[in-house]
């Protein structure tokens, strides 16, 4: 009887089951949905709130460029008058709010465009996979 149980737990067919493997590895389990929502909240918090406290000093490239004169022929950005230029929202006086709104819009826009691109890539994959291969139960 115990021999049967031991055989079952080491059955190779378990290897095809991601859930069983994850649990076997002893990893605390959270759902993909939970992870996605947590990640999105973290991104919104960083861009919408904490970004206000970011350093306003020039970044590495800007500093090197200014120190050595690389930026002598730098040109204004074509979109410098856009409503979100320099991560500030036009016509919003409060700097905390102005930057926060810009950050939240940026997170939303990046999420939308990124997900759209990856969704399209996946759709093409699935469309082309119809004749490709049958599931083998192994790792791809």
């Amino acid at each position: 009887m115990s021999a049967t149980n031991a055989t079952d737990t080491t059955n190779p067919s378990n290897a095809t089951d991601t859930t069983a493997e994850t649990q076997a590895a002893g990893a605390p389990k959270v759902s993909v949905k939970w992870l996605w929502i947590t990640g999105l909240l973290a991104a919104l918090l960083l861009a919408g709130g904490l970004s206000y406290y970011a350093s306003a000093s020039p970044d590495g490239l800007e500093k090197v460029a200014a120190d050595h004169g690389i930026d002598e022929k730098a040109e204004d950005h074509a979109a410098k008058d856009s409503p979100l230029a320099d991560y500030q929202t036009k016509d919003v006086g409060n700097p905390r709010l102005s930057g926060g709104i810009a950050g939240v819009i940026g997170v939303g826009a990046t999420l939308a465009v990124g997900t759209g691109v990856f969704w399209a890539v996946r759709r093409r994959t699935l469309a082309g996979a119809g004749t490709a291969q049958a599931p083998t139960g192994g790792e791809g």
């Binding site: 991104a43 960083l46 940026g106 990046t110």
Partner: peptide
């Protein structure tokens, strides 16, 4: 889940890049 997760990675990088 693949497309939403990869999209989230892009959004998270955008957010983190605001934190100089």
């Amino acid at each position: 889940r693949a497309a939403p997760l990869a999209g989230l990675v892009a959004a998270f990088i955008f957010a983190a890049q605001m934190l100089n």
